[in-house]
Amino acid sequence: MQVVKVPGKDKRHKVFLYALSTCAWCKKTKKFLEDRGIEFEYIDVDRCSKEDVAAIKSELERRGAPMSFPLIIIDDKVEILGFKEDELKEALGV
């Protein structure tokens, strides 16, 4: 799976982002994290193979999360659907 790691100084949280490469809200989310030096990993689901999409689908089903983007998962428990700046700031303590 093509998971991209974006290094950052702020490693307090484990941040994983499900995104689409074409999605402007996803870009905004990536930029938000980069600008604040938050380390995160992301995957562009529209660039994934069928097998990878299948794996992502079952992972999101297991979480009970919809296949909508951006989906940000913080420390494996907090899920934020969509670019909600206030919620992101609070969850990430920035």
């Binding site: 074409t22 402007a24 996803c26 983007f69």
Partner: peptide
């Protein structure tokens, strides 16, 4: 041109 923010 499908929606850029949805999976097609």
């Amino acid at each position: 041109p499908s929606c850029p923010c949805r999976i097609a």
